[in-house]
Amino acid sequence: VSVELPAPSSWKKLFYPNKVGSVKKTEVVFVAPTGEEISNRKQLEQYLKSHPGNPAIAEFDWTTSG
Results as ranks from 00 to 15, higher is better:
Phe60Lys: 03
Leu5Tyr: 09
Glu37Asn: 10
Ser65Val: 11
Ser22Ile: 08
Gly21Cys: 10
Ala7Phe: 06
Trp11Asp: 02
Ala58Asn: 14
Ser50Tyr: 08
Thr64Arg: 10
Ser10Tyr: 11
Gly53Leu: 05
Gly53Pro: 03
Ala7Asp: 03
Ser39Asp: 08
Glu59Val: 06
Ala56Thr: 11
Gln46Met: 12
Ser50Trp: 08
Val23Ile: 13
Trp62Val: 02
Thr26Pro: 14
Phe60Pro: 01
Tyr47Phe: 05
Lys42Asn: 11
Lys49Pro: 00
Gln46Phe: 11
Ser65Gln: 11
Pro17Glu: 11
Lys49Cys: 09
Thr64Ser: 10
Glu36Tyr: 04
Gln43Ser: 08
Pro55Trp: 11
Glu27Asp: 10
Leu48Met: 03
Ser10His: 14
Pro33Asp: 01
Ser39Cys: 13
Gly66Arg: 09
Phe15Thr: 07
Pro52Glu: 06
Ile38Gln: 01
Trp11His: 01
Gln43Arg: 07
Leu48Tyr: 02
Asn18Gly: 13
Asn18His: 12
Lys49Trp: 10
His51Met: 03
Thr26Asn: 14
Ile38Phe: 08
Gln43Ile: 06
Thr34Ile: 00
Asn40Glu: 07
Thr63Ala: 09
Ser9Ile: 12
Glu59Ile: 05
Val3Gln: 07
Ser50Leu: 11
Lys49Thr: 10
Ser22Tyr: 08
Pro52Leu: 06
Lys25Cys: 14
Leu5His: 06
Tyr47Glu: 00
Ser65Tyr: 11
Phe60Asn: 01
Ser9Trp: 10
Lys13His: 01
Pro33Asn: 02
Pro55Asp: 03
Gly21Pro: 07
Phe60Val: 02
Ala32Thr: 06
Lys42His: 12
Ile57Gln: 06
Ser9Phe: 12
Val31Glu: 03
Pro8Val: 04
Val1Asn: 11
Gln43Asp: 13
Glu59Ala: 09
Val29Leu: 07
Ser22Gly: 13
Phe15Leu: 11
Ala7Gln: 04
Thr63Val: 06
Ser10Val: 05
Ser22Ala: 10
Asn18Ala: 12
Lys12Ser: 06
Phe30Thr: 00
Ser10Met: 14
Ser50Val: 09
Val20Phe: 13
Ile57Pro: 08
Lys25Leu: 10
Ala7Gly: 07
Thr63Arg: 09
Phe15His: 07
Thr34Leu: 02
Tyr47Ile: 01
Thr26Gln: 13
Pro6Ala: 08
Lys19Tyr: 12
Arg41Asp: 08
Ala32Ile: 01
Pro17Asn: 09
Phe15Arg: 04
Ile57Arg: 04
Ala58Lys: 09
Glu59Pro: 02
Thr64His: 12
Pro33Trp: 00
Lys12Tyr: 06
Gln46Tyr: 10
Leu44Glu: 00
Gly53Ala: 05
Lys13Arg: 05
Val28Phe: 05
Asp61Ala: 05
Val3Arg: 07
Glu4His: 08
Ser9His: 14
Ala7Leu: 04
Asn54Tyr: 04
Asp61Arg: 06
Ala32Ser: 11
Arg41Trp: 10
Ser65Glu: 11
Glu45Asp: 08
Asp61Met: 05
Val31Ile: 15
Pro17His: 12
Leu48Lys: 01
Asn54Ile: 02
Lys25Gln: 12
Tyr47Lys: 00
Gln43Phe: 05
Gly35Val: 00
Val3Phe: 11
Glu4Arg: 08
Tyr16Ser: 05
Pro6Gly: 07
Lys13Met: 03
Lys13Glu: 03
Ile38Leu: 08
Glu27Cys: 15
Ile57Asp: 04
Tyr16Lys: 09
Pro55Asn: 04
Ile57Met: 11
Ser65Phe: 10
Leu44Cys: 02
Tyr16Ile: 09
Phe15Ala: 09
Phe60Trp: 02
Asn40Met: 04
Pro17Asp: 08
Val29Met: 07
Phe60Ala: 01
Ala58Cys: 10
Leu14Thr: 04
Glu36Lys: 04
Ala32Glu: 00
Leu5Gln: 06
Glu59His: 06
Lys19Val: 12
Ser50Arg: 10
Ser50Asn: 11
Asn18Cys: 14
Ile38Lys: 00
Phe30Met: 02
His51Tyr: 06
Gln46Ala: 13
Glu27Met: 15
Pro33Lys: 01
Val20Trp: 13
Pro6Tyr: 07
Lys13Gln: 02
Gln43Lys: 06
Gly66Asp: 13
Val31Met: 07
Val31Ser: 02
Val28Leu: 07
Ser9Arg: 14
Lys42Ser: 12
Ile38His: 02
Glu59Cys: 11
Thr26Leu: 11
Asn54Leu: 04
Glu4Ser: 10
Phe60Leu: 01
Lys25Asn: 13
Ser39His: 13
Lys24Ala: 14
Gly53Cys: 06
Asn40Ala: 04
Pro8Thr: 04
Gln46Ile: 12
Pro8Ala: 04
Phe30Val: 00
Tyr47Asp: 00
Asn54Trp: 04
Leu14Tyr: 14
Gly21Thr: 08
